[in-house]
Design a protein around this nucleic acid. Structure first.
Length: 514
DNA sequence: ACAAAGACTTAGCACTTCGTGT
DNA sequence: ACACGAAGTGCTAAGTCTTTGT
């Protein structure tokens, strides 16, 4: 794995701050890749799958038909019942129609996509029902694409790319009540794409008959390709996977900043408490804002983006002035560092409080999950209770009942074996007793595991652990905990997580303190 | 000094795959 | 071997912070 420690020592040794800053701006020396993998071209519908307008079958032009399929595919989603969605879709759709089509298709209500919808549902099911070998073949094809487009060379190392495919065309699905829901997300063409790679590398070849918007060599940024999306007119990037050295070092750096905050947070807290009483309104507002950032996580957003002049609660405070104040308190400090710091320090404290070294691995894992949950609650990472919760809980309970029965049975059998041994006193019956004992132990252990599972599940039903685990908890705390208490790392991090946190697994020993 | 653009991180949903019990 | 729920993964919107431009 990478050696971030060495990297830091190097850049520190440069002395002058200015110099280090320019040094840090360079993200790579060599970058070579194949460019993005483009979404497959539209395949026209078979002739027997028809679109109907006002009850009459109507053959659509290719472009119009493609957009119709986007809508048809979503037919059983509640999005398509929303007026905003429908209006946005219809406006954008009409724009892509031929003049003739525009004349005919006047109202979305008269459009019948049902046949098209069914075609895709059937197609999906057919794909699922494919024989093993066929599925295997498809898998091999995706693997091949991943192999060819999914990696790049960065400073001599082969690194995995996070998102190497362009986003396919479709209908925009914003979250919540988004005013742009249903708008047409256009197909990304090579002519939209800016390629970033090193000068001396093999420049990616655009698909035949096309050319790139631009090929540039900017080693102060980490992206490999970018384009502007048409909905919000913002940039989209192709970047590296979290397992890459580049991302890993950045992640590590983030936690190092949070650890430095640990050293000064006491001072900062007493300062902002004093500043509440300041005569200067600006200072007061800043102090209150800081308190909210530090203590009331979920309001961070609310107070950071007070851009609406209508209800300007912190009218003397801008994000710029707050952040430069934070920067003065500690180099690298910004609002979100408080979140990282509070989450990580809480995990460390909770692990200390909840772990019993005498416990078995299952019980230790319960303690770990409880510590993780304390953090998720703190960060307000809540979720709706899963729809299947009750059902799966009952299934688990049934398992426990069955296991209890097994325990009783095993106990009875052991008793019988003991009696038998008492009577016979031979080697064979003695062995039988041992065997039954072992069996009982095993079943009891399984029962214990199930009981722990129930507790864990119940406590977890309204809390999402993923986000904090992936983004806010210094992985070295978890790695150290695993090493200290003999818990295999696989029990708390799955494969992807282990790849992302490879730097921490490599670096932290059992004595690590956040 | 401020706003807009650019870069990068975080978040949650939906689909796929995996693991377990039957 | 099969079905089911849980876990894992892919995707992309949305958020934060930095940089750039006026």
């Amino acid at each position: 794995m990478c050696c971030p420690l060495i990297h830091q020592t190097e850049s520190r040794s440069h002395g002058r701050w200015e110099e280090e800053k320019t040094e840090d701006k360079v993200k790579w020396k060599q970058l070579e890749h194949k460019g993005p993998y483009f979404a497959p071209l539209y395949e026209p519908l078979p002739d027997d799958v028809k679109f109907y307008y006002d009850g009459q079958p109507m053959k659509l032009s290719l472009a119009t038909e493609e957009i119709a399929t986007f809508y048809a595919k979503m037919l059983d989603h509640e999005y398509t019942t929303k007026e905003i969605f429908q209006n946005n879709f219809f406006r954008d759709w009409k724009e892509e129609m031929t003049e003739k089509e525009q004349e005919i298709i006047q109202s979305l209500d008269k459009c019948d996509f049902k046949e098209i919808h069914k075609y895709f549902v059937d197609k999906n099911e057919a794909r699922k029902a494919l024989p093993k070998e066929e599925k295997q073949k498809l898998k091999e094809e995706t693997d091949k694409i991943q192999e060819e487009y999914g990696y790049c060379i960065l400073d001599g190392h082969r690194e995995k790319i996070g998102n190497f495919k362009t986003e396919p065309p479709g209908l925009f699905r914003g979250r919540g009540n988004h005013p742009k829901m249903g708008m047409l997300k256009k197909r990304i063409m090579p002519e939209d794409v800016i390629i970033n790679c090193s000068k001396d590398s093999k420049i990616p070849v655009p698909p035949e008959g096309h050319k790139w918007k631009e090929v540039r060599c900017d080693n102060t940024v980490t992206w490999l390709a970018s384009w502007t999306e048409n909905i919000q007119n913002s940039l989209k990037y192709i970047m590296l996977n979290p397992s890459s050295k580049l991302k890993g070092e950045k992640d590590w750096q983030k936690y190092e900043v949070a650890r430095r905050l640990k050293g000064v947070v006491g001072k900062i807290r007493s300062q902002y408490r004093d500043d509440w009483k300041s005569r200067e309104m600006k200072t007061r507002q800043r102090a209150v804002a800081l308190y909210f950032i530090d203590k009331v996580f979920k309001n961070l957003k609310l107070f950071m983006q007070n851009k609406d002049p209508g209800d300007d609660l912190f009218d003397r405070l801008t994000t710029g002035s707050l952040n430069s104040y934070l920067q003065d308190l500690m180099a690298g400090l910004s609002a979100k560092v408080f979140r990282t710091y509070n989450a990580s320090i809480t995990l460390q404290e909770q692990l200390k409080a909840l772990t019993n070294p005498e416990d078995n691995v299952a019980a230790k894992l319960l303690a770990y999950n409880r510590a993780n949950r304390a953090v998720a609650v703190l960060c307000n990472h809540q979720r709706a209770t899963p729809k299947t919760f009750e059902k799966s809980m009952q299934a688990l309970q049934a398992k426990i009942d069955a296991k209890n029965q097994q325990v009783e049975d095993a106990q009875a059998e052991l008793k019988r074996a003991k009696a038998d041994h008492k009577a016979k006193k031979d080697v064979k019956s003695k062995e039988a007793v041992e065997k039954k004992k072992k069996l009982l132990e095993k079943i009891k252990e399984q029962l214990e595991k199930l009981n722990v599972q129930v507790m864990d599940k119940e406590e977890n039903k309204q809390i999402a652990l993923g986000t904090s685990k992936l983004n806010y908890l210094d992985p070295r705390i978890s790695v150290a905990w695993c090493k200290k208490f003999g818990v295999p790392i696989e029990k708390i991090y799955n494969k992807t997580q282990r790849e992302k946190f490879a730097w921490a697994i490599d670096m932290a020993d059992e004595d690590f303190e956040f």
